[in-house]
Write a protein that binds this DNA or RNA. Sequence first.
DNA 1: ACGTTCGGTGAACGGTGTTTACAGAGTTGA
DNA 2: TCAACTCTGTAAACACCGTTCACCGAACGT
Lengths: 248, 248
Amino acid sequence: MTETTRRERLRAETEREILHQARALLVGGGREAVTLRAIARELGITAPALYRYYDSREDLLQRMCDDICGDLAAELSADLATMSAQDTIGQVFAVCRGFRHWALAHPQEFALVFGSPDLVTTSCADGEANRATHDPFGRIFLTVAGRVLATHRIEPPADSAVPRQLHTDLVTFRDSLIAAMAEQGIAIPTDVLSLGTVFFMLQFWVRLYGHVALEVFGCFPFAVSDPEPLFDSMLADLAAEVGLVSGN
Amino acid sequence: MTETTRRERLRAETEREILHQARALLVGGGREAVTLRAIARELGITAPALYRYYDSREDLLQRMCDDICGDLAAELSADLATMSAQDTIGQVFAVCRGFRHWALAHPQEFALVFGSPDLVTTSCADGEANRATHDPFGRIFLTVAGRVLATHRIEPPADSAVPRQLHTDLVTFRDSLIAAMAEQGIAIPTDVLSLGTVFFMLQFWVRLYGHVALEVFGCFPFAVSDPEPLFDSMLADLAAEVGLVSGN
DNA sequence: ACGTTCGGTGAACGGTGTTTACAGAGTTGA
DNA sequence: TCAACTCTGTAAACACCGTTCACCGAACGT
């Protein structure tokens, strides 16, 4: 079907199985438990055979990162598919809540992809500037954000309120953002993507990621028996900050 | 001096050296590089000897967490000592900036203490409810926050704006907060520690931790060449949100 | 002075990543 | 069809890891 020769089919199958077992080990015992020998054992082969598929353990972990990102993106996409296409604000909220739920349900995966100081995920690694427009998970965020911008007038911070040192970075991001949006058939008038708007998107992500990381890593200053209301109040704050009402 | 017998002195010395070398390995190669054999090699002893000091590698890592927290607290305390005792708001800002700078300068330590899904640091492990009032780093935050509350009138969110589900947790935290403050000689009238105030402190920490974690883990959606203005604008936002002006 | 405790060693066990030489099946082309 | 070649696997080996065990000598309390 998808592949021509028989060898290629078997190889793809094995590759899938390797990643699958690696994920199971990650979930069960964290990053340190993802062992070449353990993976091989589960597959009924020997450890050196894995070197036909990956350069090293580190390389395998890297590929697993991409795999995880893809799964997360797929899960969020599935959630979105069940929603009204009209309610673009609701879609943003759904993606945010979906991200949180995924992270809480998959703490080890989250720690690997979003909580490792060294490997910067490098992802596609073609350009270097923007991650979000390339990695499949980031694209979902930008898509729903773009749909809101295309359907609602928001009240972003004034451009004058954006720290000067961020200007060039924000402009660069805005450009690749418009390009990525256009690729998905979402036309954003360049004037609604003001510097203040892009700045707000950055702040939005900082707070979203921050809350989720805090919760996954259990770094609350005291025991919070149910952090969900805190999360929801943060989302409401963010929406209110730019004059969005969840109703319409 | 501090210890009576000669054996105790030597033991304390060795214990210090173990943690010191373990830290060096952590900084150089992350958690996985902290190896009993490598530590022993640096000390000129054999690996099994370390079991006279720690139950296991995991136990050693745990102690190292506490050690790191202590160092962070010491560094922040030193910063505070150079500041005017009057400018309590400036002290809060200094602690926040100090936390960020420490995290960026010590990413591996940060990842170990503030970015591990499994071991919840357990820290003192006596009570279970509140972490901040026990661990030395949390106490610094609470101290400077307490000083602001004792010297300034702030405009916290109304109690009615606090999600109902958080009430009991917040009340519990407030009580242990007042107790911890009193221990340090800071008297907080219980009426300034409204539910809204404690809620704001929680939100404050979420945003502070969130930004720092994001930066350490490099999870920006695009390349931000200098994130410091973003951090500073967040601090200004937080202060403005409760009506604090940095001047007085 | 004696027995005990403490901090250290060396050998061993099973597990790990990685390299090397080698074997066999799948594929390709004359 | 058959030879050349590529691809996927193996087995052995190396160096390293955490951990346990038996043992030893110096420091310690009585």
